[in-house]
Design a protein around this nucleic acid. Structure first.
Lengths: 240, 240
DNA sequence: ACGCTTCTGGTCACTCTGACCAAGAGGTGG
DNA sequence: CCACCTCTTGGTCAGAGTGACCAGAAGCGT
């Protein structure tokens, strides 16, 4: 009693796009880990680990991702630090835990190589079970922020490979925003944004007219404050 | 050696609008604290304190604000968790410190009541000295984010009292964005946004035509994830 | 009373957006 | 092998929003 320690942990919301088991439409999926000890034993939780003194926060998030999916992230961003005193069951003598939550996006091509770790299972993001700790809130916040950020940043590309068709890009938006977009208008806006350049090549073997392939004009900007500041151009676009 | 501990601290970037000492125009100011011990002894740093196990993160930020300015914040938002391993001088045997940084806005009327704490001094935000730790980066990021957020949220009102004129609101924007705005266009856009309603009253005693007074239609939305999620409408507007 | 300054309402050209139409260009199936 | 289907791609059009700018309204100071 009274000997509670303050522990810092790093959790990661990992998202990937896969077809919905029923509708078949692309949806957000994420891996959860079943807890094998108290508190919340048996419940699902976001993957994470206590921060090691020799690790950066992002390093810890990367290791968690490796451990649960076998993958290295192409996009990793800090989401929020959750530190309410009552995050663990009150009065249980458990340590006080502050969690820094990260957010990782898995590209389609890598997703295929994903290997589930111990006690790991993937869920459709919007149909996830009730989670341990305050992870329901964390997840809801992560999804809300992802959807918001689709509107003004280039993160959609974090789901795609180097070369992609505009239809693929549009499907990412449709999946995350959960609403259909007009193909012609979408094309017009994307091209007007200059974020994308045609490679000149076309995708063959499709069922219909072969779509042109595009490439990202500039790499996806990092949301890391150090880089944002160094970049010198605090475009509102890129500031979370 | 090797006995380094992991310490969690909360720092706060406190901003207020005051006239620039030379130009007289409104600018961002912030309070800094002079360090009285190693590391970085004698340098200026953001106010903060180690997190107490019985405190929420925001509670800690609030106390820091109280201690350095004597004020209670009307607007407080979490900015980012800075956790690079080398934030403190490397190899010095110092504890590893992870800082969760908050962001507080002081209203004009309260600013008048501000009382400087021990070793506290206010600086023009863009003319701050070189700071201890990685606080230069933290500050730059905070300012960049504040300026970005002015564009799509209602935080400008966090600088103002309940009743205000459109000119006052415009001055806040001009001060933060560091560029003049057309009064007529500004008025049109603010009124079109429906965020503001006229009180019917007018401000008298001004040098010229008495401006109408307005009031915020809806309170400034909190950026706290718990409330954002509970609110149920993840408007992109309000998500950080 | 006059001039000055700010407040406030309005115009205008331009851009952006969403809804929609239609031709292009490949497979596919009879 | 040809008509057809579906997706791609280019275009139009009305409406909303934006920035630049003009001008009258309404106070104060001299």
């Amino acid at each position: 009693m009274g000997a509670e320690q303050l522990v810092l942990a790093v959790s990661t919301v990992v998202v990937a796009l896969r077809p919905h088991p029923e509708t078949g439409r692309l949806t957000l999926w994420l891996p959860l880990v079943r807890r094998i000890r108290e508190p919340y034993r048996g419940m699902w939780a976001l993957p994470g680990e206590p921060l090691r003194p020799e690790d950066d926060l992002a390093t810890s998030a990367r290791r968690t991702l490796e451990r649960t999916t076998g993958l290295a992230p192409h996009y990793l961003e800090q989401l929020y630090a959750f530190g309410a005193v009552d995050r663990s069951p009150a009065g249980s003598g458990e340590d006080r835990v502050v969690s820094v939550v990260y957010w990782a996006i898995i590209r389609a091509d890598e997703d295929a190589r994903a290997i589930d770790g111990e006690n790991v299972e993937w869920f459709v993001a919007d149909e996830a079970p009730h989670l341990a700790f305050d992870h329901d809130t964390v997840l809801a916040y992560a999804l809300a922020r992802l959807r918001a950020k689709m509107g003004y940043s280039a993160i959609a590309h974090a789901f795609l490979t180097d070369e992609f068709t505009l239809a693929e890009l549009r499907q990412v938006y449709e999946a995350v925003l959960q609403r259909p977009l007009d193909p012609a208008n979408f094309r017009r806006q994307v091209l007007a944004s200059k974020r994308v350049v045609p490679t000149g090549r076309h995708l063959s073997g499709t069922a219909h007219r072969p779509p042109a392939l595009y490439r990202l004009a500039v790499p996806i900007p990092s949301a890391d404050p150090a880089r944002v500041v160094a970049a010198g151009h605090p475009e509102q676009e890129e500031l979370t």
